[in-house]
Design a protein around this nucleic acid. Structure first.
Length: 735
DNA sequence: GGCAATAGGCTTTTT
DNA sequence: GCCTATTGCC
């Protein structure tokens, strides 16, 4: 054992050290928020390499985001010197890499493409269009999400079909197998396939599995609480031989159940791996004691958890401030004032603040206030760069050049820019291809044999085929960078957007430019850059990955995005029944617990100060709703909260009106209850209140709109769904 | 087939 | 309220 390699162990606390030094056998590290989870992972990696137990090529480290993977790489490189750290990556990117190596085991081409959710939905739509009759009522989106959930849980088309009962399920049962065969025909994998197909190779080809089992002496997994069934099985298989599987996670931070994460994976780790060593990291290095106590008091209300109590050596800290607002504008204004005060007094700088919300739609009001007050901010999330239409159009050209089987990308670009090939011609081409079991691109090459295509269209299609073929040939001769630039120039996309000369088209041109820079950057930073490699990289990035945490700006993001990050001052907004927790979780115990965990994640992002806000009225969508404070506010130990006094609140509200020029509100119409009253037992017509309807029975009010004679309520009845009533006519009583 | 006007859905979270 | 997809007209 080299002595310098273990010197850094002294930087760890006792629990962390033991987690690092226990290298053999299954290990579960229950790591609370801010307890140095990434530290343990990176030091463990460095320890394995530094003590000579094994080399980087024999350690597999899986994360959920590229950002986490990048951070891990950087920190390991600092500890053990610069090395190629090949097998550190996200589940999806590691699987994509394995699939590129083992594609022939599935008889897939090496040049397969990866479909994102948009591609996925387009493919489903094209399937639905072909057998238009039975599916008309359902959206590709809803069908895609069911199929995805099946794939996460390893439910194959046959099994789904056996259990399909409702009309919707039968529609899915009809589409699911066609979707799967279409993916194969297009030589495409969707996100779920990357994992599922890798698992399939491991299960069908013991030789290949053994190869990887021997390769990976040690396996480490970050955010284990977020793994789904397929990921669990992948890990189980890979670790079967050496059994050195170390997973790190926090059951209290499991917030991805809705996309297939199975919290049982972490809760039952010791059942799956009987001789597992378990370590608890409970010392928190991030937050004040008060914030931790508050967060603990909240999350303790959850039933299904491993149980742990975070503590801190930091100072006690200030109470959590509850900001009560009239509406979402007032809420934003109060936050702005708070930030301004601290920044202008020189206490803090912008980048120390984060504003978190449940849904992206909430960012608008906040952004607006930020802009008006001249505060710099960055939004993380919303529409991803690589999801923008103009960017996806260029990417579709590239995907098609890499893989002409990709009919989704072909459909996207065949008439973009317009070449006189409309939906009618396209349908004829698709039909022709289907009858002869040909690829659509191959049909285009013999387009003059297809009946019913106009002469102008024929000419244009042949030119299009020539264009694509030209770039297929160029692909291996020039760099991806040159290829994309030449292509964009030849197709004339930038010229097209520039000649439109509108603000939107300008933005589109800029985005295409930015894509070109992204290709350059990729080409510079990759040893042997290829077009397929670039496409793979962009398919698997998220927004947090591109978030620039160096610029001095206030960060706005959803609570989900904030996981793993920390900020000196955090604002959590919209703590209202129906918004957080969201309506859809109100009658589902598990979903409600997940919402609570999400709030817990938000609270534990704060190092020094935490602000929580809610508004008595909020415009979401088009209508303005009256709202009740979230039940979560009630669940936090009330001694740790400080509610801004009403007078103070009113004063600030008046200031808000003056500085915004907004019309004043009628004070007597202020509908929300007294500020200190978080009780849900109200006798008013407000969201959350229960009513009994003569026809539908007991139901809960979801929203209240209008006033006087026009007062309307939406009520949710179990089994009946949501109903809307005019209060003056409806026959119900308040419970 | 292309374009402008209109309708409809969305808003829980994303690798 | 905004964005996209569809419709209707040229």
């Amino acid at each position: 054992m080299k002595s310098d390699s273990i010197k850094f162990l002294s930087e760890l606390n006792q629990a962390q050290q033991r987690a690092v030094e226990t290298t053999e056998g299954p290990v579960l590290v229950l790591a609370g928020a801010g307890s140095g989870k990434t530290r343990v992972l990176t030091y463990r990696y460095a320890y394995l390499v530094g003590t000579g137990k094994t080399g980087p090529q024999n350690i597999l480290a899986m994360t959920f985001t590229n950002k986490a993977a990048r951070e891990m790489k950087e920190r390991i490189q600092k500890l053990v010197g610069v090395q190629t750290l090949y097998w550190i990556g996200t589940f999806h990117s590691i699987c994509a890499r394995i699939l590129r190596r083992e594609h022939s085991a599935l008889s897939y081409s090496k040049d397969f493409v990866i479909y994102d959710t948009d591609d996925q939905q387009r493919l489903i739509k094209s399937i639905m269009d072909q057998d238009a009759v039975p599916f008309r009522d359902f959206t590709p989106k809803s069908i895609a999400s069911v199929i995805s959930r099946c794939k996460n849980r390893m439910i194959l088309p046959e099994e789904f079909s056996r259990n399909a009962s409702s009309a919707f399920e039968q529609a899915v049962a009809g589409i699911y197998p066609v979707y799967e065969s279409s993916l194969r025909k297009n030589q495409a994998f969707d996100f779920d396939d990357l994992l599922l197909m890798t698992l399939r190779i491991f299960e069908d080809r013991p030789g290949i599995l053994l190869d990887y089992q021997k390769r990976f002496h040690y396996i480490m997994v970050d955010e284990y609480q977020d793994t789904n069934r397929v990921q669990f099985l992948l890990l189980k298989r890979l670790a079967e031989l050496n059994r050195n599987l170390c997973v790190v996670g926090d059951d209290d931070q499991s917030i991805y159940r809705w996309r297939g994460a199975d919290i049982q994976n972490i809760l039952e780790f010791e059942t799956h791996f009987r001789d597992a060593s378990v370590f608890r990291l409970e010392q928190n290095y991030r937050s004040t004691r008060l914030i931790l106590r508050a967060a603990n008091s909240l999350v303790e209300k959850n039933a299904g958890r491993k149980g742990k109590r975070l503590w801190s050596e930091k100072e006690e800290g200030e109470k959590i401030e509850i900001l009560e607002a009239m509406d979402e504008i007032d809420e934003a204004q109060k936050i702005v004032e708070q930030i301004k005060e601290e920044v202008f007094r020189g206490k803090r700088i912008f980048k120390q603040f984060a504003i978190l919300y449940r849904t992206n739609a909430q960012s608008r009001a906040i952004e607006d206030r930020m802009r008006r007050n001249g505060l710099s901010y960055v939004i993380v999330g919303g529409v991803r760069f690589y999801d923008r239409k103009e960017v996806k159009d260029v990417l579709a050209y590239l995907k098609l050049i890499v893989n002409t089987s990709d009919s989704v990308s072909l459909h996207r670009v065949v008439n973009f820019p317009t070449r006189g090939i409309g939906e009618v011609s396209w349908k004829r081409i698709v039909e022709f291809a289907a009858e002869r079991n040909m690829h659509i691109f191959d049909v285009l090459q013999i387009i003059d044999k297809v009946p019913g295509i106009g002469t102008r269209a024929v000419k244009n299609i042949l030119a299009f085929v020539e264009l694509i073929r030209k770039y297929i040939n160029l692909k291996n001769q020039i760099s991806p960078n040159e290829l994309v630039r030449t292509l964009v120039d030849e197709v004339g996309l930038l010229r097209m957007y520039k000649s439109e000369n509108t603000i939107e088209s300008q933005g589109k041109a800029e985005n295409v430019q930015e894509l070109l820079s992204a290709v350059s950057e990729y080409a510079e930073n990759t040893p042997s850059p290829t077009l397929a490699g670039f496409l793979e990289e962009v398919s698997l990035v998220s927004d947090v990955d591109t978030w620039d945490d160096k610029s001095n700006a206030i960060t706005l993001m959803t609570l989900h995005c904030a996981k793993g990050l920390e900020f000196p001052v955090v604002f959590i907004t919209g703590l209202e029944e129906g918004l957080f927790p969201v309506y859809r979780s109100l009658d589902d115990k598990e979903a409600l617990e997940e919402e609570r965990r999400l709030f817990y994640v938000g609270m534990t992002r704060a190092c020094d100060r935490l602000f929580i806000s809610w508004a008595g009225q909020r415009r979401l969508f088009i209508d303005s709703n009256y709202r009740l404070p979230s039940r979560f506010l009630n669940e936090i130990d009330q001694n740790l909260l400080h509610v801004r006094k009403k007078a103070e609140r009113h004063e600030r509200w008046m200031e808000g009106i003056h500085s915004t020029g907004k019309e004043s509100h009628d004070e007597k119409s202020d509908p929300h209850p007294a500020y200190e009253d978080y009780s849900q037992e109200t006798r008013e017509l407000v969201p959350g209140a229960w009513v009994k309807h003569e026809e539908y029975g007991k139901g809960q009010i979801r929203s209240v709109e209008g006033s006087g004679e026009k007062l309307k309520i939406r009520v949710y009845f179990k089994g009946e769904g949501e109903k809307k009533f005019m209060v003056q006519y409806a026959r119900f009583t308040l419970l």
